[in-house]
């Protein structure tokens, strides 16, 4: 069965829509004692899942980059391309929503000394670099090797970002899910879970669609070459 990435993406978008609605209408409000801007807290329902999706995308980027670099797998290169775009989009969503929420809750949109904020932004910038860089170069082994190398080395930031709030709580709060220290209201957890699943489905759909796109681009180039050879 050949399921198109676009179809999976639609399911993901539907899930996001549901998350949004539940987050606005159903999830409980938070106390003014716990949050400076209780209304803005509802950003949480897309902010956290988008961060999770971005991490997933960066993980796929690492896999694609590594497999291309060491095994010269065409499939892996398509995964690199698709996941760098996915990481860029979800990374930007997380950084954007995080800055807005930070402005509301902390009074500042950014903190240059917070490890998590900066390493996450760095990963997003790395994706932007990979996406723009690839568009600036003709496709070939040199470009693929160079960008895969950056994709591999950049991955070192992922575990740092993940553990950052466990080791150094500077500005960004620590984990509230799946830990003994944090606690989340069960209704909030349900909405968050739906959001996480929806973003996961979205990422998978987009990566599938993106890989198909790269395949189409390569097919187009081959056809163009055949056409030119035929015309000579």
């Amino acid at each position: 069965m050949n399921i198109r990435g676009e179809v999976v993406t639609m399911f993901g978008l539907a899930g996001l829509g549901l998350t949004f609605w539940l987050g606005m209408e159903w999830a409980p409000s938070v106390s003014i004692n716990a949050f400076k801007a209780p209304d803005a807290q509802r950003i949480f329902y897309w902010h956290v899942p988008s961060a999770w999706a971005a991490m997933l995308a960066f993980g796929l980027l690492f896999i694609g980059s590594t497999y291309w670099f060491f095994k010269r797998s065409e499939w892996a290169w398509r995964l690199h391309v698709a996941s760098s775009e996915a990481g860029l989009a979800t990374g930007l969503m997380c950084v954007w929503s995080g800055c807005i929420w930070g402005a509301a809750e902390w009074g500042v949109p950014w903190d240059w000394t917070d490890i998590r904020l900066n390493t996450f932004a760095m990963l997003t910038l790395l994706s932007l670099y990979l996406v723009l860089g690839r568009k600036s170069q003709p496709d070939g082994i040199e470009a693929r090797d160079t960008f895969s190398a950056f994709g591999m080395y950049g991955f070192v930031l992922v575990p740092i970002t993940y553990v950052a709030t466990r080791l150094w709580q500077i500005r960004h709060p620590g984990p509230v899910i799946a830990t003994s220290e944090g606690s989340l209201n069960s209704d909030m957890s349900i909405v968050l879970l739906i959001g996480a699943i929806s973003f996961t489905v979205l990422i998978i759909g987009h990566v599938m669609a993106g890989m198909r796109l790269t395949n189409l681009e390569l097919r187009l180039e081959d056809l163009q070459r055949q056409y030119e050879e035929r015309s000579e």
Binding site: E6, A40, I43, W46, E85, S97, W101, L213, L216, L220
Partner: peptide
């Protein structure tokens, strides 16, 4: 707080929309 909320979600929806549209549009063109 509501203004921040709207700004945050508008930005995310815009990013999502642009990303999805470019992938789908490129696919059709190709």
């Amino acid at each position: 707080g509501q203004t921040y909320l709207v700004a945050a979600y508008l930005g995310m929806i815009a990013a999502l929309g642009i990303w999805t549209w470019t992938v789908f549009a490129r696919s059709r063109t190709l």
